[in-house]
Design a binder for these strands. Sequence first.
DNA 1: ACAACATTTGGTTATTATGCCATATGTGCA
DNA 2: TGCACATATGGCATAATAACCAAATGTTGT
Lengths: 106, 106
Amino acid sequence: MNRKEKLIYDARAKIFKALAHPTRLWITQKLVDSERCVCEFVDELDVDFSTISKHLSVLKQAGIVEDDKRGKQVYYRLKVPCILKFMHCVEAVIEYQAKEHNKLIK
Amino acid sequence: MNRKEKLIYDARAKIFKALAHPTRLWITQKLVDSERCVCEFVDELDVDFSTISKHLSVLKQAGIVEDDKRGKQVYYRLKVPCILKFMHCVEAVIEYQAKEHNKLIK
DNA sequence: ACAACATTTGGTTATTATGCCATATGTGCA
DNA sequence: TGCACATATGGCATAATAACCAAATGTTGT
């Protein structure tokens, strides 16, 4: 891997890293339908609101979401909706593994 | 996020985590064309071979690749080729960001 | 200006990931 | 059998991540 490749793969890895957390994936999924207020995540997730805020910050830094302050509240939305398409592939990996696992048990 | 959702998003996050490293992304990309021997990675990457072996193990645990020992060498291949399609989306995120960055500079 | 609210940021600690070295395992060949 | 090669595994030091609490920031309504 040369220097140029290194830069490319670092940049890509950053996107994957941002998505590599259950809470952030859940948030991303929520944003597929429509933008959401941070307060909605706070209500639905059982973690400290500061934690949620940091997760949102990671997604924002990675360029996956963008935010928008309206009054007291901050709304987040997906910047690049194609993210969701990959979930089918991810599910395929999981199902494939489940199948293999069953084979081993039988 | 309820208990069932938690399980789903944990499983998905595991896949993303496996891909969330430049070296592992690079390896994955190499495997898109054809299977590869571990030795090829050792030659092309400037890290200890034990490190490469561990990266491959992470990808294998996640169900992204499978291996196959032939003689002294071990060959790895992609188990679920759809992984690559996502790269287009990842590139879109990166380009979008680059564009915005340029705007800010001008 | 002040209080109440929504969110972000800083600090601390616990957990996890990474990379190297040394060692173990497995394979083919002399 | 014994040696050389290819890969995997265990151990350890260091770095990165995640969660919480506390405090700061910014906004609306009084």
